[in-house]
Amino acid sequence: MDQGTRAVNNAKTPDGGCIGIGLRVPQHREWTQLKPPVDFLEIHAENYFDAGSPARADLDLLRPDYAVSIHGVGLGLGNAALNIRHLQSLRDLVARTEPFVVSEHLCWTGLQGAYFNHLLPMPFTEETLARVSDHIELVQSVIGRPLLIEPIAAYLRYQEDRINEADLLNALVDRTGCGLLLDATNLYVNSRNHGENPQTFLEKIRFSAVEEIHLAGCHLNQFQDGRVWIDSHDRPVADEVWALYRQILSLAGPRPTLIERDANLPPLQELVDEAEHAQLLMMNVHEGALCR
């Protein structure tokens, strides 16, 4: 096996109380120069599919120093059919990178060959449960490991909804053996946009299946005829999301937690500061919950 396809053998696996930051291409130089003191980094899978790209070369430089989480944004588990070439590219990236978790979203992204470049919400129905279960099982069989499923920030709900979102996620866990990725910002945004009580979700979700937590920035967009909260990933984590994170920690226990920033990227040290704040909150909620 040549160097271009060889899997990295010195993979790291973080403990439950570890903190990470999203590795984004514009910050690669900062990462390779500063080697920030965090426990893991997260990559968006699609940015690293090209085995000969500079992005993959930078990732290989960083891989010996950090555990890696792979977060997919384009597979579309709710699509009518999965893109097999996309899935094969994900399989190859997983084999080379040896991440400690691989995650995707509960959403659809395209139809009849058209890709919409958005995470589009699914109706909460038995049909969705059956289709997504089949697709999760296919993905897991191809990549050879469990997949984490993230419920999205959804800007609409369907009249056809018949299943509570948390119950749907729990059923996916039961049927497929997948895990869950819980994004506190998504939960907050959905509560504000749809008048949903996040406590209802937290009372139902199976925390034993939650293997990672995301924290990101959000903001309120005002319009002439209304307003909407946007999961924008372009600013610091809001105080309300930090408060929700504390509550999640009190229920779930220490979990690997990611500071997720995708736009309006600040100096890397600002993201490190947020990561350290998350670590302090985790320690306050669960004394001694540090990586070893």
Rank of each mutant, 00 (worst) to 15 (best):
T5E: 11
T5C: 08
R6L: 12
N9Q: 13
N10M: 09
I21E: 00
R24E: 03
P26Q: 08
P36R: 03
F40K: 10
L41W: 03
E42N: 07
I43D: 07
H44I: 14
Y48C: 02
D50Q: 06
S53E: 02
P54S: 02
A55V: 03
R56S: 02
R56E: 00
A57C: 04
L61W: 02
L62H: 01
D65V: 01
V68H: 01
V73T: 12
V73A: 09
L77V: 06
G78M: 02
N83I: 05
S89E: 10
V94Y: 01
T97F: 04
P99F: 04
P99W: 05
V101W: 08
E104S: 02
H105F: 00
C107R: 04
C107E: 05
G110L: 07
L111C: 11
G113D: 08
Y115A: 08
T128Y: 04
T128D: 00
S141Y: 06
L156C: 12
Y158R: 10
E160R: 13
E160K: 11
R162C: 10
R162S: 15
E165T: 07
A166M: 08
L169G: 07
L169R: 06
N170T: 06
A171Q: 12
D174Y: 09
G179L: 03
G179R: 00
A184D: 09
T185I: 01
T185Q: 04
T185F: 00
T185R: 02
Y188V: 11
G195K: 07
G195H: 07
E196S: 15
P198F: 14
F201R: 09
L202Q: 12
A209V: 07
V210M: 06
H214V: 01
N221K: 13
Q222E: 13
G226C: 09
W229C: 12
I230A: 09
D231Q: 05
D231N: 04
H233N: 03
V237H: 12
L249M: 13
L249N: 10
A252Y: 10
G253C: 12
P256T: 11
T257D: 03
I259T: 04
A263V: 08
A263L: 12
L265T: 08
E270A: 14
D273G: 09
E276L: 15
E276A: 15
H277G: 07
H277V: 14
A278F: 09
L281Y: 11
M282K: 02
M282E: 01
E287L: 11
A289K: 07
C291T: 14
